[in-house]
Amino acid sequence: MEKNVLHYFVDTNSSRGFVSFWESNFGKLEKVVKLDGYPDLLVTQLVSQACAQALGCEQEVELVHNCLDNSLQGIILPGQKTGLLNLPAYGDESYSLRLAEDENLSKARERVQRAYGCFGQALKIHDDWERIFISSMDFEAMDELAEETAEKLFGGQKTDRAGSCADRFFGAATVNGSYDYIPNITQEIPKRYFLKGRPGTGKSTFLKMLARAAQDRGYRTEAYHCAFDPNSLDMIAVRELGLCVFDSTAPHEYFPDRDSDEIIDIYKAAVQPGTDEKYEKEIAGYSAGYKAKVREATGYLGEAKLAYHQYQKSVLESVNPDRRIGSMDWIIGKLFGR
């Protein structure tokens, strides 16, 4: 895995529609080249060129990926305090192409909306699934575990500055299914805590509490939200302290593979023993229904991708090659302060 390159997503196609955290990541940069509906092929070329140039100078690079198909969508060069981000033409925050009458673009938007509907239905199933474990939770034990963990992670440490937070996603529900960059994001973090539990056992609440504790102590915190439900958290990382805590259950299930890795098991600590066995049939039903709706949503995302590809193909065919080269050179210059 290449060092000095961090991979993540800033937006998601989710149960709550299209949600973007681009401002949280790009808003504090000194210069941002914000593209609107650029064809993915050109963006990939731009980002790849900028990445190679930055790595050649041993600079850090953050690569932002497209939540539809995991292609490259943007780049941040922290050393230059510059970035580039392409907003997809089918997204809620794309404006310049709204007047274009294009059948494929309209189809892409319509299929993405259908996917949102399926994800929304999956969320309702997930909420019912969560109620099983919520009714079996020992919330006092949960609060105690959270307080103990915060003390273990932060103790009396704090900085003399105000804390900050960058909201992101470590994964996405792509056309090829769920995908995440957890190994990349955590590769340079010495201490990793693997959060285990069940739906409704408070993993997100646990992480939100730790994120607040880190920020209250003045630390720069990376908060990675759930791509399926952006209102929930799936990971926090505090690189200054060399630690991260993340939800390591399906669909992003991981297990310790370093001596320093540690598991935090909420189910074991705060859920009534035997809950899995008592509600085995109901849990299996909710799990099957949830997965079926997610598969249906993924199918619609696949159709959106095909339609969007055809739309982008027509755009590329209309672009003058010389102007394309000139435009790309200008953008690269902006990123590197030329």
Rank of each mutant, 00 (worst) to 15 (best):
residue 175 V to D: 08
residue 175 V to E: 05
residue 176 N to K: 04
residue 176 N to Q: 12
residue 178 S to K: 11
residue 179 Y to D: 06
residue 181 Y to I: 10
residue 183 P to F: 14
residue 185 I to V: 15
residue 185 I to R: 09
residue 186 T to I: 12
residue 186 T to L: 06
residue 186 T to F: 09
residue 189 I to S: 00
residue 192 R to H: 01
residue 192 R to C: 02
residue 197 G to D: 06
residue 198 R to P: 10
residue 200 G to V: 08
residue 200 G to S: 03
residue 203 K to C: 01
residue 204 S to Y: 04
residue 204 S to A: 07
residue 206 F to Q: 02
residue 210 L to W: 06
residue 211 A to D: 15
residue 213 A to K: 14
residue 213 A to T: 10
residue 213 A to Q: 15
residue 214 A to W: 07
residue 214 A to I: 15
residue 217 R to E: 05
residue 217 R to N: 09
residue 218 G to I: 14
residue 218 G to T: 13
residue 218 G to D: 01
residue 219 Y to N: 03
residue 222 E to C: 12
residue 222 E to Y: 07
residue 222 E to H: 02
residue 223 A to H: 03
residue 223 A to W: 08
residue 224 Y to G: 00
residue 225 H to S: 00
residue 225 H to Y: 00
residue 228 F to A: 04
residue 230 P to T: 07
residue 231 N to P: 10
residue 231 N to T: 09
residue 233 L to I: 10
residue 233 L to P: 09
residue 235 M to K: 03
residue 236 I to E: 10
residue 239 R to A: 09
residue 240 E to S: 07
residue 241 L to Q: 08
residue 241 L to M: 01
residue 242 G to Q: 00
residue 243 L to N: 10
residue 244 C to A: 01
residue 246 F to I: 05
residue 247 D to L: 13
residue 247 D to W: 12
residue 249 T to N: 08
residue 250 A to N: 12
residue 255 F to P: 08
residue 255 F to I: 13
residue 257 D to W: 11
residue 261 D to V: 05
residue 262 E to S: 04
residue 262 E to F: 04
residue 264 I to P: 03
residue 265 D to R: 12
residue 265 D to K: 03
residue 268 K to M: 11
residue 271 V to C: 02
residue 271 V to L: 02
residue 272 Q to R: 13
residue 273 P to I: 05
residue 275 T to C: 00
residue 275 T to E: 01
residue 275 T to W: 02
residue 277 E to Y: 12
residue 278 K to P: 15
residue 278 K to W: 14
residue 281 K to F: 12
residue 282 E to N: 11
residue 283 I to A: 03
residue 283 I to P: 00
residue 284 A to M: 12
residue 286 Y to N: 09
residue 286 Y to C: 10
residue 286 Y to G: 06
residue 286 Y to K: 03
residue 287 S to E: 11
residue 290 Y to R: 07
residue 290 Y to E: 13
residue 290 Y to G: 13
residue 291 K to Q: 13
residue 293 K to T: 09
residue 294 V to P: 06
residue 296 E to K: 11
residue 296 E to F: 04
residue 300 Y to L: 13
residue 300 Y to Q: 12
residue 301 L to N: 03
residue 301 L to V: 12
residue 304 A to V: 05
residue 305 K to T: 15
